[in-house]
C-alpha cells in the first residue's frame, strides 16, 4: 500500500546542513499498523513529513520514492499530492490544541476540509458528514462540539476532533505523529484504542510514530526502528521485540523500565546530524563496535531468512541467527 524507498531529506541551517532523513526505506501493507519508533530527534517526524509533502523550506527532499497505491508521492505535482492528503491519507498530529485553528469554529474547519476535496457542498451537507465523523470517534453531543471552538475542548476531546477530521473523508492510510504525547496518561489509551478501532474495523492502514515501545508492542503489527535519520531495524513487532537484532534496538528494549528493574543507560551521545559520521551512526555508542563500523555504512540485510525483517549492522550476517551473533562478538573480542 505504501512503499517508502531511500527517502533523504536535509535542512539548511545557520550551522550547516542537517541530515534529518538519510535513505529511509520501509513499507506499510494494507490493513497493517506500522510503528516508527526512536528517540526524539531521530528523524521520525521528518520522515513522515517528507512522505506527506509537508517539508517546508529550509528543508528539502533530495531523493527517494514513496509509492502509495502505484503513485510516487515525491514525484507527483504538489497539487496532486495535496488532493491525496486529507482524502486518501489522513494525518493526526502531536498537539491537538495546536492542530485546530483557534479562530474558526469546528464546523467551519470541517466544512473547509470537505469542500477542499469534494467540491461545492452546502454547509448542511458538510455538517452532516462532520456529525457522523464525530460520532464515529466517540464524541457524545457532537452538535455542541461542532459549534464550539478549539479552546473550549479538553485535550482528549480535541484529539478526537482532530482524528474525526483526519478520517471524515475515509482515507485508506492514517498517519499519526505521536498522537498521545500531549495528553494525560488515562486518555492516551482511549485515543490509541480509538485509532486502532478505526483502522482495524475499516481495513485501513496506519503509521504510528511514537517513542513509546509499549505502545508499539501493543498496537503495531510491524515496527521500524530509527536512529540518527536512518532505519536500523524493521520487522514484525513480535519477532523484533523477542529477539532484537540491532544493538541499538537491544539497548532500547533494555531501557524500557520494568518494575524493579534499572533503566538501561547508553553511554555516549547521538551523533550530530550536521557532521554526520562516515560509518554506522550508532558505532560510537555501540558496545560491540568493530573497526569497520566507524568507517563503512552497514547495508540493510534480512535477518535469519525471515521475510520483512531487516537490520543494518555489520555484526549481523545475513544467514546467521541473531542470537549466535553474540558469540561471534565475544570470539572477536577474545581474538
Amino acid at each position: 500500500m505504501l512503499e517508502v524507498e531511500n527517502v533523504t531529506t536535509r535542512f539548511r541551517s545557520r550551522r550547516g546542513v542537517v541530515h534529518a532523513v538519510n535513505g529511509v526505506s520501509f513499507r506499510v501493507g494494507s490493513s497493517e499498523i506500522v510503528g516508527i519508533v526512536g528517540e526524539s530527534g531521530c528523524g521520525k517526524s521528518a520522515t513522515i513529513r517528507s512522505v506527506l509533502g509537508l517539508i517546508q523550506p529550509p528543508g528539502e527532499i533530495v531523493g527517494g520514492r514513496a509509492v502509495f497505491d502505484g503513485t510516487d508521492l515525491l514525484a507527483i505535482p504538489a497539487g496532486a499530492l495535496r488532493r491525496l492528503r486529507g482524502s486518501e491519507i489522513g494525518f493526526v498530529a502531536q498537539n491537538p490544541f495546536g492542530s485546530l485553528n483557534p479562530i474558526l469554529s469546528v464546523a467551519a474547519q470541517f466544512h473547509n476540509l470537505i469542500v477542499a476535496h469534494r467540491g461545492r457542498l452546502s454547509r448542511k451537507q458538510t455538517r452532516d458528514m462532520a456529525l457522523q465523523a464525530l460520532q464515529s470517534v466517540g464524541i457524545s453531543g457532537p452538535e455542541r462540539v461542532l459549534d464550539g471552538y478549539a479552546h473550549e475542548l479538553s485535550g482528549g476531546m480535541a484529539q478526537r476532533v482532530v482524528i474525526g477530521m483526519a478520517t471524515v473523508l475515509g482515507p485508506r492510510l492514517l498517519v499519526a505523529d505521536e498522537p498521545t504525547t500531549a495528553l494525560d496518561m488515562t486518555i492516551q489509551r482511549q485515543i490509541l484504542d480509538l485509532l486502532q478501532d478505526l483502522v482495524r474495523k475499516r481495513e485501513r492502514s496506519m503509521i504510528l510514530v511514537t517513542h513509546d515501545l509499549g505502545v508499539v508492542a501493543q498496537y503495531c503489527d510491524r515496527v521500524v526502528v530509527m536512529y540518527a535519520g536512518k532505519v536500523i531495524e524493521t520487522g514484525p513487532t513480535a519477532q523484533v521485540f523477542a529477539r532484537p537484532a540491532h544493538p541499538y534496538t537491544q539497548a532500547l528494549l533494555g531501557s524500557v523500565p520494568r518494575r524493579g528493574e534499572e533503566i538501561g543507560i547508553l553511554a555516549g551521545r547521538v551523533p550530530s546530524l550536521i557532521d554526520y559520521p562516515p560509518g554506522c551512526a550508532f558505532s560510537n555508542r555501540c558496545v560491540h563496535a568493530l573497526d569497520r563500523c566507524a568507517r563503512i555504512v552497514p547495508a540493510s540485510r534480512p535477518v535469519a531468512g525471515e521475510d520483512g525483517w531487516n537490520v543494518s549492522c555489520h555484526l549481523v550476517s545475513g544467514d546467521a541467527d541473531p542470537l549466535s551473533r553474540e558469540e561471534d562478538v565475544r570470539a572477536h573480542r577474545a581474538g
Binding site: L52, L54, F91, Q94, N101, N112, A116
Partner: peptide, 15 residues
C-alpha cells in the same frame, strides 16, 4: 510555522 497551519496543509487544504 504554527501547528494549526501544518495540520491545515496535512488536511490537504489549498494553499
Amino acid at each position: 510555522q504554527s501547528r494549526q497551519v501544518e495540520f491545515a496543509r496535512a488536511c490537504g487544504l489549498p494553499e
